Deep mutational scan, measured.
Amino acid sequence: EETYEVDGEEQLKKVEKMLRDRNLDVEVEIHNGKFVIRAK
C-alpha cells in the first residue's frame, strides 16, 4: 500500500491518474484540508 499527501485538486488529479494508470485501487480522503491518497 502506498500513501500520498497532496495539497490542492490539481496535484490530486495528477497523482490519482498516475496510480490508476498502474491499475491500482485508489481511495481519497481529506485530512486537515489535505488530500490523502491511498493506493493498493
Score class of each variant (00 low, 15 high):
7 D>A: 07
8 G>Q: 07
7 D>L: 10
10 E>P: 02
7 D>Q: 10
38 R>W: 03
12 L>Y: 07
9 E>S: 05
30 I>E: 11
18 M>N: 03
16 E>Q: 07
22 R>F: 09
6 V>T: 04
32 N>H: 02
10 E>T: 05
35 F>W: 10
40 K>D: 02
2 E>S: 05
15 V>A: 02
28 V>F: 05
40 K>G: 05
10 E>N: 06
5 E>G: 04
32 N>D: 12
9 E>H: 09
24 L>R: 03
18 M>H: 04
15 V>W: 08
17 K>S: 07
36 V>H: 09
32 N>V: 00
35 F>H: 14
25 D>P: 02
40 K>H: 10
31 H>P: 00
3 T>F: 13
11 Q>A: 12
4 Y>M: 03
33 G>V: 00
17 K>Y: 00
16 E>A: 07
14 K>H: 09
18 M>I: 09
34 K>W: 06
23 N>C: 15
32 N>T: 00
18 M>A: 08
11 Q>G: 09
37 I>H: 03
11 Q>M: 13
33 G>I: 00
8 G>E: 06
7 D>Y: 14
31 H>K: 13
35 F>E: 14
10 E>M: 06
37 I>E: 13
34 K>R: 13
6 V>G: 05
33 G>S: 00
19 L>N: 00
23 N>I: 01
31 H>L: 13
15 V>S: 02
11 Q>K: 05
11 Q>R: 04
8 G>Y: 09
2 E>Q: 08
26 V>G: 01
38 R>G: 07
9 E>V: 11
35 F>K: 14
30 I>V: 10
23 N>E: 07
6 V>Q: 01
22 R>Q: 07
10 E>V: 09
11 Q>F: 13
22 R>C: 15
17 K>L: 02
28 V>C: 15
12 L>E: 01
13 K>H: 10
32 N>M: 02
30 I>N: 08
37 I>G: 09
17 K>P: 01
21 D>A: 09
21 D>N: 05
19 L>R: 00
39 A>L: 13
26 V>D: 01
1 E>N: 10
37 I>C: 13
9 E>G: 05
3 T>M: 12
39 A>S: 08
27 E>Q: 11
8 G>W: 13
28 V>M: 03
15 V>E: 01
32 N>Y: 00
20 R>Y: 04
24 L>I: 09
24 L>F: 12
18 M>K: 05
7 D>M: 12
35 F>R: 14
5 E>W: 13
26 V>C: 15
19 L>F: 08
14 K>M: 13
5 E>Q: 06
13 K>Q: 09
24 L>W: 13
9 E>K: 06
12 L>R: 10
36 V>A: 01
12 L>P: 00
27 E>D: 07
2 E>G: 06
11 Q>I: 07
9 E>I: 14
15 V>I: 14
17 K>I: 07
39 A>Y: 06
23 N>W: 12
20 R>H: 07
5 E>H: 11
2 E>T: 11
38 R>N: 10
18 M>Y: 05
23 N>V: 04
8 G>C: 15
9 E>F: 12
12 L>V: 05
35 F>I: 15
15 V>P: 01
38 R>L: 08
38 R>Y: 04
36 V>K: 06
34 K>D: 14
33 G>F: 00
5 E>P: 03
35 F>M: 15
36 V>S: 00
36 V>T: 04
25 D>F: 13
34 K>Q: 09
1 E>I: 13
1 E>F: 13
33 G>N: 06
37 I>R: 00
18 M>T: 04
8 G>D: 15
21 D>T: 03
24 L>P: 02
17 K>N: 06
2 E>I: 13
36 V>F: 04
27 E>S: 12
32 N>R: 00
27 E>H: 12
17 K>Q: 11
17 K>M: 06
38 R>A: 09
34 K>M: 05
23 N>S: 07
14 K>Q: 11
31 H>D: 06
6 V>N: 02
33 G>A: 00
16 E>W: 06
29 E>N: 07
27 E>T: 14
26 V>W: 15
6 V>D: 02
7 D>S: 09
23 N>R: 07
33 G>E: 01
38 R>C: 14
3 T>R: 11
13 K>P: 01
23 N>A: 06
22 R>M: 11
34 K>A: 08
